[in-house]
Amino acid sequence: MSFSARLHANAIGWVLPVLVIAGWEAASRAGVMPANVLPAPSAVAEAFWRLTLSGELIRNIGVSTARALAGFAIGGAIGFALGLANGLSRLSRGLTDTTLQMIRNIPHLALIPLVILWFGIDEEAKLFLVALGVFFPIYVNTLLGIQSVDPHLVEMGRVYGMDRRALFFRVILPGALPAIFVGLRYALGIMWLTLIVAETISASSGLGYMAMQAREFLLIDVVVLSILIYALLGKLADSLARLLERLSLGWHPAFQN
């Protein structure tokens, strides 16, 4: 696909959001939508400008993003490492998989009361919850990816004299990569979700905290603004994951067009 064609394909995805916002603005101006239910997009834009000037918005986005990424790095790294270990070693899988599957079935947000008791409302609480949330999609899909590598290719690698290291980097890991990316994109979604909930319930900074503060003071434009920013951040994370996917899975027929 040429660059301009790709630009068009991307642009078409934004037609609907733009139309919705235009309709929403029109409805607010016509008085169909009362401002204390949903403020007009222009009012939200004003709030955006106001909070940007005061520096409050940038600071809170920064705080939330740092939490999200730190939690993601911790949970993702552990999930990836355990997924690899359990995919490659029968002993490791036998030892840990049952336990992990049991823990997986507890909704991680159900741990919030316990987490608050453990960590209070400090950073650790948010990091813990995000890390726990992203751990499982990464773990499950890494394990699945390794287990679904074509055994014929592994046998071929052995016959052609690859040692364990070469076999891993040239056959097993590339074969598992499509599944790992599925896990990555799931995990990014869960990362934001967990963070929103955690920040809404207990925080003294961040986007969720900003939204809760605004609710206290009936600043509904700021509430809507934070929700929109969550949507944009989520979309940004997903686009980054897709870009990585396209760069590293160029061989895959699904990415050749």
């Binding site: 014929h152 290719l153 056959v171 590339p174 074969g175 990569l177 899975l249 061989w251 895959h252």
Partner: peptide, 9 residues
């Protein structure tokens, strides 16, 4: 019997 080529190489 099958080519067994690495699809990512």
């Amino acid at each position: 019997q099958e080519p067994r080529l690495l699809p990512w190489a």
